[in-house]
Nucleic acid binder design. Structure first.
Length: 425
RNA sequence: GGAGAGGUGUCCGAGUGGUCGAAGGAGGCGGUCUUGAAAACCGUUGUGGGGCAACUCACCGGGGGUUCGAAUCCCUCCCUCUCCGCCA
């Protein structure tokens, strides 16, 4: 969330930003509620001060008459305070709700526009793979190789769930270990996080666990949710804490399962592993000072590019437009891998995403660091290292051979222990 | 899951319902002393909100209640520890 006072003092800027981001939010209302809330606080504090003074006067011995007068006054104050507190609580709640709808401010270089078409392609690395034979999509490949099984999952679990078998199972382990090793070398702390988090953590990160359009599975009666990304458990790990300046930038790599409801998502671009209810992901996360967050964002993007370069998968980098950012992000880069099985003749499919969320998340999560004796909010950034399901799509489709077998990218061979996935007899 | 004990500041640890934002240690920071260091001594050392400021309000696991007044009493939830049960 943004700072109340900032919203009030920069109303025009915030309203303009809401418009550019194509979000429904009411900054003016926030400013008004904030002003009202502060007036109530002032009145409430006055009353409480009177109450404290009144109580202090009764510490010693008093004539009964005098004491009764104080008691009566105290009772009156108590009533006034109760009434005022109710007003305050209502205002505070409304203020928080309205404020959470307001998106982060936007990096000046972010392209304008509301849809994917407005995203700006920064560069293409590698050449879209072409074949001298009739290529297949990952669904055909995975099924005929017997390594991806949607049919069994359909029976046991439902649509958009899957079993990974044999070489595909090994491939998942290889990809996660590959990413972990690379990030370990970069000084990241490696963590396997819970796949579940409390609702207030989700909200602090900027997810809305409730509502019909929510992508989040909630756990009945627990106040917790299945996480959609370990961004939640990594970012939440330092909630309500004050970091030392010398431990920044703090770099974490998290491995978790990710769960998404994906209600209503269908169509040719959602087929197979592309949009599923559960997948495994290695996520990068950085806590840093405001001064270094832009360069840390570049760093995360560079790491993502390094990973896909080593995997020898053609990709392009996209600067995501204002309307497609999501509330917490100040700026976002996506990497889209070439997926030969996508659409008629192949296409770009998102495989990673890295966001600089500045202090939008740390404000509500209360994650700060000491600077010259004062506490300041940290900046928080996240980026995908490997989203396994989509990486598998890219590998199967780009490395398929004419006989339907799959060559393993050489960087992964030390992790898989095999160089090829062949048709089982 | 059952029985008992407990949750206080960075940590340890006191706290008859009013003088407690909180004793006393330890640690941190600043200083005196010292060639330097240690020791000793002195001072300082939580977070958030409102206000230009002086200042003020809130916070002793969370929430609610009793009271003129709650860290202190009551209810409830959560968590931790010990014992038992169950289990990978």
């Amino acid at each position: 969330m943004l700072d109340y006072r900032f919203i009030k003092e920069n109303l025009d800027l915030v309203e303009e930003n809401i418009k550019n981001r194509n979000v429904v939010a009411d900054a003016r209302k926030v400013a008004e509620l904030y002003t009202q809330r502060n007036e109530i606080i002032q009145e409430l504090d006055d009353l409480r001060q009177k109450r404290n003074d009144n109580a202090a006067k009764m510490k010693g011995k008093l004539e009964k008459e005098e004491r009764d007068t104080y008691i009566a006054f105290g009772q009156k104050l108590k009533e006034d305070i109760t009434v005022k507190e109710e007003v305050f609580n209502k205002l505070e709640k409304e203020l928080a709700e309205e404020t959470s709808k307001i998106p982060n401010i936007t990096h000046p270089s972010v392209p304008a526009g509301f849809t994917e078409e407005s995203n700006k392609e920064l560069r293409i690395v590698g050449k879209p793979t072409s074949f001298s034979f009739e290529s297949k999509d990952h669904l055909q490949l995975g099924t005929s190789l017997g390594i991806i099984d949607f049919e069994t999952a359909q029976k046991v679990t439902g649509q958009k769930w899957y079993y990974l078998k044999n070489e595909a199972a090994i491939l998942e382990l290889a990809l996660t270990r590959f990413a972990f090793d690379l990030l370990k070398e970069e000084g990241f702390d490696l963590v396997i996080t819970p796949d579940v988090a409390r609702e207030e953590i989700l909200e602090g990160i900027g997810f809305n666990p409730r509502g019909p359009e929510s992508n989040i599975y909630r756990i009945e009666g627990e106040g917790t949710c299945l996480i959609g990304t370990s961004e939640i458990t990594l970012g939440g790990a330092y909630a309500k804490s004050i970091l030392e300046a010398d431990e920044l930038p703090k770099k974490l790599a998290g491995l978790s399962h990710c769960f998404r409801k994906e209600a209503g998502a269908a169509g040719q671009f959602s087929k197979g592993l592309y949009r599923v209810h559960q997948f495994t992901k290695v996520e990068m996360f950085i806590f840093c000072t405001p001064e270094e967050s832009d360069s840390m964002h570049d760093y995360l993007l560079a790491l993502e590019e390094k990973i896909f370069t080593r995997l020898e998968i053609p990709y392009r980098v996209v600067d995501v437009c204002a309307g497609d950012l999501g509330n917490p992000a100040y700026r976002k880069f996506d990497i889209e891998a070439w997926m030969p099985g996508r659409g008629e003749s192949g296409g770009w499919g998102e495989v990673t995403s890295t966001s600089n969320c500045t202090d939008y998340q740390s404000r509500r999560l209360q994650i700060r660091y000491k600077k010259d004796g004062k506490n300041q909010l940290v900046h928080m950034l996240n980026g995908t290292a490997i989203a396994v399901s989509r990486a598998i799509i890219a590998i199967l489709e780009n490395f398929q051979q004419e006989d339907g077998s799959i060559k393993i990218p050489s960087a992964l061979v030390p992790y898989t222990g095999f160089e090829k996935i062949t048709v089982r007899k």
